[in-house]
């Protein structure tokens, strides 16, 4: 599927050329030391096409996503700057979009954001002026029609050329609605979408079949989220404690079947098998590797899953 390039980002070019894309995830530090960002970047450089830079994830104050994105790009790793709707009104959002584009950021991924009650400032006032679907619309309006929400026109060379990202969750309730919500984001203008981490392959496949049937994969690149299981304990925790995640017993049994010190290896094996399946799944354009505080494992996984070398664009 080839579409006119919207942003010219590396991620967009990789997807547009029909390559199976790989993205990573990086959480900025809870302080101002740039070195920490650079260090995490080096585990990912050459192993992923671009990296999501989270925006105060779980509502904990961290280095600004825009700043960490610029730091990553200075090291040669393209950023998918994340922006949540929790902390900014439409004025700040549009301003940040213009600023991010001016600083050379090419991919912007939009999320609702975790409620502030989960973070380190539960007493904060939240914003939620626009929701994620509307923010996608606004970004598309700025990029494609060259207008702010106010109607103010942007000069042709002053439009934010950003590749628009969004998230989808095939596993949340109610199941029948999930593809509709994804469709809504595609309709609003999402160019690529990354999912919640996938373990329930049959349900994911069913979701993708519906997305293909609805023609969504013709308009938007769908990527599957992958988080390798570090241990049996983590698998059990995900199964029992994390809402909206279904964990098949077969994975739990496999981890049970190996000694504790071998469980991370088995988790990586499972993830690599999933990636093989994703590569062959109709409509799926790539994988999003979410290795929170396990970034150093990324090189091994991409190697074992045959995802490297990444295409030269």
């Amino acid at each position: 599927m080839t579409r006119p390039l919207r942003s010219g980002s590396r991620l967009e070019k990789v997807l547009s050329a029909g390559h199976f894309a790989v993205t990573g995830e990086l959480g900025p530090p809870r302080h101002a030391r740039a070195e920490d960002v650079r260090e995490k970047v080096h585990h990912l450089l050459g192993n992923v096409d671009s990296v999501n830079i989270t925006d105060n994830q779980t509502a904990v104050v961290r280095m600004a996503s825009m700043a960490a994105s610029v730091l990553a790009q200075k090291e040669g790793l393209e950023a998918n700057m994340q922006m949540v709707c929790r902390d900014r009104n439409r004025i700040a959002m549009q301003s940040d979009i213009l600023g991010a584009a001016a600083l050379g950021i090419k991919n912007l991924l939009i999320l609702s954001g975790d409620h502030q009650c989960f973070g380190d400032h539960p007493e904060a006032k939240n914003v939620y002026d626009l929701d994620s679907v509307n923010l996608i619309r606004v970004l598309k309006l700025m990029r494609d029609e060259g207008r702010l929400l106010s109607g103010h026109e942007l000069p042709p060379d002053g439009r934010p050329a950003l590749f628009i990202g969004a998230a989808y969750n095939p596993f949340a309730d109610p199941e029948d609605y999930r593809v509709i919500r994804a469709a809504k984001k595609v309709k609003a203008g999402a160019d690529f979408m990354q999912s919640q981490c996938v373990y329930d392959m049959p349900r994911f496949r069913k979701f993708m079949e519906r997305a293909v049937d609805m023609g969504l994969t013709e308009e938007c690149y769908f990527m599957a989220g992958v988080t390798p299981l570090k241990s049996l304990g983590m698998a059990k925790y995900m199964k029992n404690k994390v809402p909206g995640i279904t964990m098949p017993d077969s994975y739990i049994d496999r981890l049970k079947g190996v000694p504790k010190e071998k469980q991370p290896d088995e988790g990586v094996n499972i993830a690599c098998e999933q990636i093989q399946e994703f590569k062959e799944m109709k409509g799926l354009a790539g994988v999003h590797l979410m290795l929170v505080e396990w970034e150093h494992m990324v090189p091994r996984i991409v190697k074992q899953a045959g995802l490297v070398p990444r295409p030269r664009i």
Binding site: H115, Y128, S132, A172, P243, G244
Partner: peptide, 20 residues
């Protein structure tokens, strides 16, 4: 809605309950 979403639910909705 805890986030006043006009196009919900967010990813935090589980089992019919709010993430909050």
């Amino acid at each position: 809605c805890a986030k006043s979403l006009l196009n919900g639910p967010c990813g935090g909705s589980a089992g019919g309950k709010c993430e909050v």
